[in-house]
Amino acid sequence: MAELMPDDARPDASPASGLAGVLHRVVTWWGLAGGMLFCAIVGMSIVSIVGRKLFATPIQGDMELLQMGAAVASATFLPLCEMDDHHIKVDALTTWMSARGRAALDTLAHALLLVVAVLLTWRTGLYTAEAKENMEVSTLLLVPLWWPVLLLVPSFVLLALAALHRCVVSLRVALGGAA
């Protein structure tokens, strides 16, 4: 329901300077890398499908690679969505509230996401170490599972940093300051 808020009433979600600017550039490039990974796995899938249908030779383990690549690529978009404050919101119930009241609710939401992102980072890091220690591998290609899981950790770290940034920005607005 983002259309309920005019563009001029929305705080600028992409900072240009300082640590917030650096973080925004990092999450943008991280998201672009995830997009390129999606393009690569789509290309691999097309080659595998064509190979299967025309030459009876698909790419061995294409579904494993697709699953791992999609998980890693999807995670790269989370920090960018949070940094630009583009996660789905149900604003229909809060349109009657003042901007400061909505900012207070946003502060709570961003703080909860920060907690979840920190927990995801911690638990994913632990699973990475456990998968490496136990030498877990994928079924067909025998790819060590800790490789793709390790690639999720930076996305969760960036998500936590972006949530912290949005929490500070929302708190500033809730307390009556400028975004």
Rank of each mutant, 00 (worst) to 15 (best):
M1C: 05
M1V: 09
E3M: 01
L4D: 15
L4V: 06
M5I: 15
P6I: 06
P6A: 08
D8L: 11
A9Q: 14
P11Y: 07
D12G: 11
D12V: 09
A13K: 08
P15R: 03
A16N: 02
S17W: 01
S17V: 05
L19N: 09
G21M: 03
V22E: 02
V22W: 08
L23P: 02
T28D: 14
T28F: 15
T28P: 03
G31L: 05
G31A: 15
G31H: 04
A33D: 09
G34P: 05
G34Q: 01
C39Q: 13
I41Q: 02
V42W: 00
V42A: 15
M44P: 00
S45A: 10
S45R: 02
V47N: 06
V50T: 12
V50P: 10
G51S: 06
K53P: 01
L54N: 01
A56H: 15
P58T: 11
I59T: 14
M63E: 06
E64Q: 00
E64R: 00
G69M: 07
A70N: 02
A70I: 05
A71G: 07
V72Q: 00
S74N: 09
S74V: 10
A75G: 01
P79R: 04
L80I: 07
M83E: 05
D84E: 12
D85I: 14
H86E: 06
H87S: 09
I88S: 11
K89L: 08
V90L: 07
A92P: 00
A92S: 12
W96Y: 01
W96V: 05
W96K: 13
M97S: 04
A99W: 05
R100Q: 13
G101W: 00
R102Q: 09
A104Y: 07
A104C: 06
L105V: 15
L105R: 12
H110A: 13
L113S: 12
L113T: 14
L113I: 15
V115D: 09
V115W: 09
A117P: 00
A117G: 04
A117E: 04
V118P: 02
L120Y: 05
T121R: 00
T121C: 07
T121V: 02
W122V: 12
W122I: 14
R123D: 11
R123P: 03
R123N: 04
T124D: 08
T124C: 12
G125S: 03
T128R: 11
E130T: 14
E130K: 15
A131S: 15
M135R: 14
S138C: 08
L140A: 01
L140T: 07
L142R: 15
V143R: 02
V143K: 02
V143T: 14
P144R: 06
P144F: 08
L145C: 06
W146F: 14
W147Q: 08
L151W: 03
L151G: 11
L151V: 13
L152Q: 09
V153N: 03
P154R: 03
F156E: 05
L158W: 08
L158G: 02
L159I: 13
A160Q: 06
A162I: 07
A162D: 10
A162T: 13
A162G: 06
L164Y: 15
L164H: 04
H165V: 08
V169Y: 00
S170D: 10
L171F: 01
R172P: 04
R172L: 13
L175P: 00
G177H: 04
A178G: 13
A179D: 09
A179I: 09
